[in-house]
Simulated scan of single mutants.
Amino acid sequence: MGAGEGEGAGADESALVAEFVARYGLPGLVDVHTHFMPERVLRKVWAYFDAVGPLTGVEWPITYREEEDRRVARMREFGVLAFTSMLYPHKAGMAEWLNGWAADFARRTPGCLRTATFFPEPGAEAYVRRAVEDGARVFKAHVQVGAYDPADPLLDPVWGVLAEAGVPVVTHCGSGPAPGKHTGPGPMEAVLARHPRLRLVVAHMGMPEYTEFLDLAERYREVRLDTTMAFTDFSERQAPFPARELGRLVDLGDRILLGSDFPNIPYPYVHQLEAVERLGLGAEWIRAVCHGNGAKLFLPDL
């Protein structure tokens, strides 16, 4: 029994997730792409989706429109061992404030990997370095919403700090759901050419430029991709993953990470797991994607 796109988050969803976890003998899930952010910021994000924003152009009901405590409890109920508080600025002057909130959230929320962000602005290198030294485990960059060039000279030292520290950065750099001025593989390839050791995690599998971002992962050993919204019924209607590339998912199986976009998803959380499962790439691949790869990157002591 599954929980398809339109069924909502029913009372038995935790049981469905638990069945998935048990089916593959997982100790739990590692989800590298979940959103926890200041309430006033999150409410604005939800309002954008409610208004059928111009970047989406489609109905996007928020499945987990709940208070923060309840959303954290969902992570526990779903057996998520580690998750993130992906947050990002859309203008200069926001990043340090967001980083302060995220540091506090991680301190009071067991299981949350301390998350940080940045924007191309004077002082970015300094506050990114401080965040790394203070214990940030993962960064978020949103090229589309921020409308900036990731190869902006103001960011060059930022990428350098992250590459040197080995701290992953989950980056929305693909052109889905709508292209931006600096989205697509080209700008990120320019960054990687200068910082080949950067642990770049391409959000949403690089949707819709799946092939091109898989190419980048083949060329750069530290490039990874997360499954966020990819392969789901919702995304397959908009930007289907090309069947011809399934073999490359197997070849790069140690660098595909589970991501979900919780809570801002228009279907139940378990549907992301089902979407990964129905690719038919085997139990070992699923175990790596849903736990092993993320645990190796973020939980090396487990």
Rank of each mutant, 00 (worst) to 15 (best):
P263V: 00
V138P: 05
G25C: 04
V223P: 03
E274L: 13
M188I: 13
H172D: 06
F83D: 00
V41H: 08
G292K: 03
K91M: 08
T63P: 00
D301R: 15
V41D: 10
L249Q: 07
L249T: 09
L113H: 01
R40Q: 13
D104T: 12
A124T: 07
G135K: 01
F213D: 10
G180P: 05
A165W: 01
E77D: 13
H33C: 10
L216C: 10
H291M: 05
F36T: 01
G166I: 05
V167D: 04
T115V: 02
R278M: 05
G146M: 10
R194T: 15
D226W: 02
M205Q: 14
L246H: 13
V72S: 00
R237Q: 14
E218L: 08
E274H: 06
F36H: 06
V191H: 05
P153I: 11
F262R: 01
Y220S: 10
G10Q: 09
D215M: 10
G294L: 05
Y24R: 09
E133W: 00
H90I: 11
F118Y: 13
L192K: 10
T228W: 01
L42M: 14
V72C: 00
H33D: 11
P242I: 03
R130N: 14
R248H: 11
L225G: 01
A275P: 07
D149Q: 07
P54V: 01
E39V: 04
T56N: 11
P122C: 12
D261A: 03
L249N: 10
V169G: 06
G135Q: 02
E77V: 00
C290Q: 05
A15H: 07
H33F: 03
L81K: 08
V169T: 05
T211S: 15
D233P: 09
E222Y: 04
V52I: 15
A18I: 06
H182F: 15
A106M: 06
H182L: 00
L16W: 04
A147K: 13
A283N: 02
A51M: 11
L216R: 12
R244S: 15
E284T: 14
G206L: 12
E284S: 13
M1F: 13
H204Q: 08
R199Q: 12
T211G: 13
C173A: 15
V21G: 05
P208M: 02
G206Q: 08
K91Y: 00
M75I: 03
F49G: 02
A82W: 03
R221V: 14
G28E: 10
H172R: 06
Y127C: 11
E13R: 08
H195D: 14
E66V: 00
A9M: 13
F105K: 10
D31V: 08
R255N: 09
I62G: 01
R287L: 09
F213C: 07
A18T: 14
R76T: 11
A116L: 02
S85L: 10
